[in-house]
Write a protein that binds this DNA or RNA. Sequence first.
DNA 1: ATCAAAGTTAGCTAATTAGGTAACATTTTG
DNA 2: CAAAATGTTACCTAATTAGCTAACTTTGAT
Lengths: 104, 104
Amino acid sequence: MKKEHKHLTSFKSHLDQQYGQRGTIIREEYEEGFEAFKLGAMLQDLRKEQGLTQEQLALKCGTTKTYISRIENNASDIRLSTLMRIIHEGLGGHLKFKVDILLK
Amino acid sequence: MKKEHKHLTSFKSHLDQQYGQRGTIIREEYEEGFEAFKLGAMLQDLRKEQGLTQEQLALKCGTTKTYISRIENNASDIRLSTLMRIIHEGLGGHLKFKVDILLK
DNA sequence: ATCAAAGTTAGCTAATTAGGTAACATTTTG
DNA sequence: CAAAATGTTACCTAATTAGCTAACTTTGAT
């Protein structure tokens, strides 16, 4: 496999522990890395947790598997509105931002 | 004033309490709202906390006060890369995402 | 090994952001 | 009030995303 998704396994086991409970909130936090921007990995993880194919996800949020693939592989920048649409309509999720600033 | 920034005051007082400390991390969390998307308000708050004008901020991150104004007033969608540039280079901050999903 | 499903890549086009300049409006300061 | 600083809006252009189709590749199942 070309790509590695570091926190997939740990997150997966966490999911497994909670599996069966209803109404459980998954919180997947993505911290922007120093080198590369791996939003794609987060989206791919979330999609797989829900057992969706790229095509199924694409259908839910009105795009194509082609585009989902590009996003997951960080092949393109992405608009905020598009990111939110994928998370909302595609994954049924809720996006939050946090900004940390070190005061001088 | 046309716009209101609800959490500016509370955040401001919190800042005032901590003022003078060095190395303190401000965590401004923005929860995407139901109705409208107020990323602009968050960015404006953060800018003002640092005592920057739109023009000063624009200089630091290689854009114009015109553009900063448009973003703060949610007059335009924004690319992720641009958002990150403003937060990094303009505000010296660090952006994090979180996705909450309610399991079915 | 073969077939089908899933994922990736390549073009092209249309829609939208980002950059630039200038004019206008609002707020602050003296 | 007057002047300066700050912020907003308008318009245009260039760069980039998003959408679309099709071909190619990889993975998984039988």
